[in-house]
Write a protein that binds this DNA or RNA. Structure first.
Lengths: 246, 246
DNA sequence: CCAAAAGTGTTCTTACTACACCCATGG
DNA sequence: CCATGGGTGTAGTAAGAACACTTTTGG
């Protein structure tokens, strides 16, 4: 029962990010090929050592800046700590894992030894990085449902069918364009830009262009099942709960 | 772009837990009073140094064992990493924060310098521990809605009104016993034990006793808004989504 | 018989889905 | 004018909230 600020037995701390993007109807993750042992040649997540003067989020943003233009990283959030003593051979390293998102359409210049891989058919990865990628995917899928996180995957302007492809790829099953538009509109997340996209060579009505309204992530569908009584003029179910954000 | 298993500049890592319990209609957290500088006399979260041979969850369970009988800890989950460089004076310490839950009714023998404090009227805490407690509270509130996490706060047998008090205290607003029973029953979380509780001195119908069915935490209300099409015999909305857990 | 507490029946609102139907464009 | 894709109208289903009502006890 002594102070817990007892800093003997220090250890290394790294930050890692699963940066996800939808490219050609597939959810992808940015990986780089290890050039050194251990696990030479395997694919691993970008990241690196936590420096003494930065917190973990600053650190992962700094380290990602080498791979992806920071402007293009539309969302970053902590996933979890991975701390199994043998998660990495050699001296122990604890990792804080992040989810990062990049919009469809932007094609960041990535170093030669990095590449985008489909999340559903990952190559052999180094260490526990596959588990981190899957955790990132699951978090993204959950948040697409109850937040406006789609904004972080979508380009600034898009048609509803493009958005449908995007959600379908990220969620792993086909969503209906009709209902997607309806749900996002009801939540006030979509605003028409006025523009339209030209129809394809086969004809068809030209699609209207939309953009997401807000910027940062907001919880749009709080799962308030046991929610406080609404004495005031009855608003909808699932719309009364408190503040937003992560 | 070299290996990130470069373990120079190591740092200390601590684990901390906000252990929550509902006692006399109030959500409380277990704190202990610091006996050493810095922040001597302030209240702080139990926890301590991560040892080289354990992962963070093992570590927090070990450290809590000194305060609370492990059997009584019905749920433990990671919250987040707190890593601001100056979060603690002196040499840097990164913390992994946990949420822990203890059922109403059990009264663990705690050391003399520890005590339960109402989460809504916290005393002055050390370091960033208040933020951690609030994060734990928010996580608990969210999960009470969409998981069976109530099992971790409730005694093994309880009446619906006792459960109502418990949910009300944890959520911070009055929930209706009627609808609480209905929602939890529909989700298959409650099973009557057959017993009844004696009525109070003022009379009244004796209350039936219930218990939670499952043990571990399960997601019971997946927020699958854009859920995969259900060709099969129409089940309810919000019931089709995949696996459970955290 | 009456107060008090427990529990059920029933209605209302709303979110989301499913699917039919109308609209605008290229050939 | 017709195929093709975009977009809207509309009914169906079910969750949860609200509240009236019944049930079972103690005095």
């Amino acid at each position: 029962m002594r102070s817990h600020i007892n800093s003997s037995a220090p250890l290394a701390h790294e930050v890692l990010a699963a940066v996800l993007q939808v490219r050609s109807a597939t959810l992808r993750v940015l990986l780089w090929r290890r050039a050194l042992d251990p696990h030479i040649g395997r694919w691993s997540l970008p990241g690196g050592r936590l420096r003494p003067d930065e917190d973990v989020e600053t650190s992962i943003r700094r380290q990602l800046a080498e791979k992806v233009d920071v402007k293009q990283l539309t969302h970053v959030e902590q996933l979890a700590v991975f701390s199994a003593p043998q998660r990495v051979p050699g001296p122990r390293v604890v990792a804080t894992a992040f989810l990062g998102l990049v919009p469809t359409g932007v094609d960041p210049e990535v170093p030669e030894d990095t590449a985008w891989h489909a999340v559903d058919t990952l190559p052999r990865t180094a260490f526990d990085h596959e588990a981190i990628v899957l955790r990132a995917r699951d978090r993204l899928r959950a948040k697409l449902s109850y937040t406006n996180l789609g904004f972080a995957l979508a380009p600034t302007e898009f048609t509803i069918s493009a958005l449908r492809e995007l959600y379908s790829a990220a969620l792993g099953y086909r969503v209906s364009a009709t209902n997607l538009q309806r749900v996002l509109s009801r939540r006030g997340l979509l605003s028409p830009t006025g523009g339209t996209a030209p129809s394809g060579r086969a004809g068809g009505r030209p699609a209207a262009l939309f953009s997401f309204t807000g910027e940062g992530m907001q919880v749009t569908d709080p799962f308030a099942v046991f929610r406080p009584p609404e004495k005031q003029a009855g608003r909808g179910r699932r719309s009364a709960r408190g503040p937003t954000s992560s």
